[in-house]
Design a protein around this nucleic acid. Structure first.
Lengths: 346, 346
DNA sequence: TTCCGTCACGAAAACGTTTTCGTGTTAAAA
DNA sequence: TTTTAACACGAAAACGTTTTCGTGACGGAA
């Protein structure tokens, strides 16, 4: 077992100073050709690679970015990570992940753990609990210490930083307009409670589309679900809620759901109740998920371009890092969503 | 913008030495109560936290583990990561990710990038290309330098290290036996080419089950797909292959597929060809996926307990790290798979 | 011969810690 | 009064780099 070789060891072996070795390896003009050759050959032989930690300490720069997300077993977030990793790698950065698990406390802990020198900057999507509590001190403190943050998807105005979001409002509006254009007269909305910013915006998009096209808003067509319930493990409850929606509104002919699971479950419940999709009821979801593509019928959906969001976020962060934060202005990049039409709409 | 405060700054401010500050903060008996109080109060006020990088350099221990996987937008792998992150966090470690994207070169690059001091050990699942090339030098070099590796799922005998695998053979055998018990007489296998170890083992499980129960093996019932084709983006091609399988074997009444996508697609194709699932054809997949649960009919499947695999892998790695690698023996932990019966089987 | 400039290299500081060892002061013991 | 021990603290090394600055040797110019 050969431990990694250091400059010091090379220096000793070759009977020169550490400085000489370092310079020789970096091809400094200060060092004679002879010595350079000798040192470089030796280094190659022993597969010398500079120690990253030492470099980080010296340069006060880790070339690592931290990404904190609520959940990783989630198509959207894993695609974002892929985007982040892609450009991070291209630009010589590593990616370290922290999962908040939708918990405020874990978000704070994770950030504190990483903020003490382990990384150069953060990419973050807020946990639901943080959104509820509206406690953003940990972000502001981090920013105050000179560590840049880029937020994506679940963002919040109270924090001054770069942001990457999808046009939730427009995306939802387009989706609902599509349903209207397809002659749906009674479009239901399945959404979350308002504290999740994206849910709120998508709800507003729905409202706006109705308003624009002169459909009146019927409160009984809106189902607001408690997003704290994990319907992924509690599917029955979700189905009951949706079934209730159908039963008290027999004329529903269109559904816009703010995420994939809601949309899919709505389709299934509709089918069970004897409705045909898309003939009787058309459905559009909001997501980057894998379910939409593979369900039968496949689900029309508003794609968020998650990977692109990750790429943009990483790009923004690294730009800021390499400009030495000199740019004190913050930008919000909006990624255009895209309506992907599949079998659940006409 | 207040930069993070260091020991040196505290020392200067309080007019004591750096050593004194360090000791005071660690509650050393060498320091008087008075001084301790003063220092600790000051540190708290300025929110002093030791710099991780400096600690890493000093202790030659980063408390970070690297996980290298072929793909992150994948239910199985993201669940593994969740498991890894869970126990890593519990035990005070961070997790840094590298994506090989199924490429040998990227796997090597990623490992080299991390092996130079950034992490204490690796958790890895091999890329397909690595499995094909059978070039494992980067693993052996890493291990030789004293950095422990734990492999999971896609492992290989040539590398001496701890491993965590699922009982692919048994899992497949059980699944096929379930089909046999449910009176399937013509069970087809949809699998990958043999270089992916897990595909090979599952295939063997299928063969073994047939043999045990006296069914003869019909080569035309086995569909070996080229796993290099990304059928996720090339669904049509996959459907065609499977359709071909059905058409040339009209008596198929059971299907065992080595992953979720194959199983799901088989169900869909079967449906299109007029077969009813599970009445005419029963289907079992192999996966930890989300598709199985939400498809209609929902898919019976062999669960791999991905998160548990991640937890075990992290546990093994950290154990080895904290025993100072003194334990020179390697173990292979086998996670029992579990047949989850849903609607696609009787 | 003297001076100066170039060449090739080494010493040392710095990044932020922890820890070992040394040392000056004070109080108690002889 | 002298010796000793406890106490409280500081200096310095170490982790592995990079970089600035200093310096001795040597050759050429004056």
């Amino acid at each position: 077992m050969k431990r990694k070789v250091t400059l010091k060891q090379i220096a000793k072996e070759l009977d020169v100073s550490i400085s000489t070795v370092s310079k020789a390896l970096r091809n400094s003009v200060e060092i004679s050709e002879d010595t350079k050759q000798k040192v470089q050959a030796f280094a190659k032989l022993y597969n010398y690679k500079p120690n990253n930690i030492a470099l980080s300490l010296k340069n006060r720069k880790t070339n690592t970015i931290g990404i904190i997300i609520p959940e990783i077993v989630h198509h959207f977030f894993s695609k974002v990570i892929r985007g982040v990793e892609l450009v991070a790698n291209q630009r010589g950065y590593n990616v370290i992940i922290g999962l908040s698990n939708e918990s405020f406390a874990k978000e704070v802990i994770n950030m504190e753990m990483l903020a003490n020198g382990s990384i150069d900057g953060f990419i973050i999507s807020l946990s639901k609990e943080t959104l509820q509590l509206q406690d953003y001190h940990h972000f502001n403190e981090t920013i105050n210490q000179g560590m840049p943050i880029v937020m994506f998807d679940r963002v919040v105005n109270e924090i001054q930083c770069d942001k990457v979001i999808v046009d939730d409002f427009e995306g939802a509006k387009n989706a609902v307009e599509k349903l209207i254009k397809n002659e749906c007269k009674h479009i239901a909305l399945i959404t979350t409670k308002d504290y999740v910013s994206v849910g709120r915006l998508r709800t507003q998009g729905y409202l706006e589309a109705l308003k624009t096209h002169g459909q009146d808003l019927k409160a009984e067509l809106i189902l607001k679900l408690d997003d704290n319930v994990d319907y992924e493990v509690n599917l029955d409850a979700l189905e009951k809620e949706i079934e209730q929606l159908f039963k008290s509104n027999s004329k529903i002919d269109g559904i816009f759901a703010v995420n994939e699971l809601y949309a899919l479950t709505a389709m299934r419940v509709a089918g069970r109740l004897g409705f045909r999709v898309p003939d009787d009821i058309q459905v559009i979801g909001f997501t980057d998920g894998v379910l939409s593509k593979h369900s039968t019928p496949s689900l029309s959906t508003v794609s968020q371009h998650a990977q692109l969001m990750g790429e943009k976020a990483a790009g923004l962060l690294i730009d800021k890092l390499e400009n030495d934060h000199e740019d004190e202005t913050y930008q919000t990049q909006i990624i255009a969503s895209e309506l992907i039409e599949r079998e659940s709409t006409k």
